[in-house]
Amino acid sequence: MTFGARMRGWFQRTGSEALGWTLVALGIVMLVMPGPGLLGMFAGIALLARHYTWADRLVEPLEEKAIEAAKYGVATIPRIIVSILGIVWVAGVGLVWFLSPTIPEFEILGVGFGPELPAAGLVGAIGIWISDLIAIVLLVYSIRRWR
């Protein structure tokens, strides 16, 4: 058995499960931090679906809803324009996070914020820009596939 075949076998069994759980955990973190949290969680659950029936039962309806939403989002030119404007807006938010302006101090449910944005700086901006890049790729894919 060659090294490549052994590595493929390992990934199909152990690696995909480990990566799936890692993506689910990172997705949960990215729900509250800048980043594509829901997408990370979905990718993790999709990998776990190869090993667990509970994950397999979750993937199919999520995939159907995602395809339905993608078709709806590119059905008309105004919807595509709104999507593009949203992508530009998110890129601007990433720029604000990168520049890290001071904000007024405030408190929500006993948790204090300010004078800096949460996760401000390059790391937060990169998370936001990765989300934006994913949105661009998915929009282009949806337009090519369903328009």
Rank of each mutant, 00 (worst) to 15 (best):
A43C: 15
A43D: 11
A43M: 15
A43P: 04
A43V: 12
G44R: 01
G44I: 00
I45T: 14
I45E: 02
I45V: 15
A46Q: 03
L47Y: 01
L47W: 01
L48F: 04
L48Q: 02
L48S: 02
A49Y: 06
A49Q: 13
A49E: 13
R50C: 06
Y52L: 10
Y52S: 09
T53I: 08
T53D: 15
T53R: 12
T53H: 12
T53V: 15
W54G: 01
W54N: 02
W54T: 01
W54Q: 04
A55P: 12
D56M: 11
D56W: 08
D56R: 13
D56Y: 06
D56A: 15
D56P: 02
R57D: 10
R57G: 02
V59I: 14
V59Q: 03
P61N: 09
P61K: 06
P61A: 04
L62I: 10
E63L: 15
E63Y: 12
E64S: 13
K65Q: 13
K65C: 04
A66H: 07
A66L: 15
A66F: 09
I67K: 09
I67H: 11
E68T: 08
E68I: 02
A69M: 13
A70E: 13
A70K: 08
K71F: 00
K71V: 12
K71A: 10
K71H: 05
Y72L: 13
Y72H: 14
G73C: 07
G73E: 07
G73Q: 12
G73Y: 02
V74Y: 03
V74R: 04
A75Q: 12
A75S: 14
T76K: 12
T76F: 03
T76A: 07
T76C: 07
I77S: 05
R79M: 10
R79Y: 07
R79T: 03
R79W: 05
I80F: 01
I81P: 01
I81V: 14
I81D: 01
I81L: 09
I81S: 03
I81G: 04
V82Q: 02
V82E: 00
V82M: 04
S83T: 11
S83M: 10
S83K: 07
I84R: 04
I84S: 01
I84K: 03
I84N: 00
L85T: 07
G86Y: 01
G86L: 08
I87N: 00
V88D: 08
V88Y: 03
W89G: 07
W89M: 13
W89R: 04
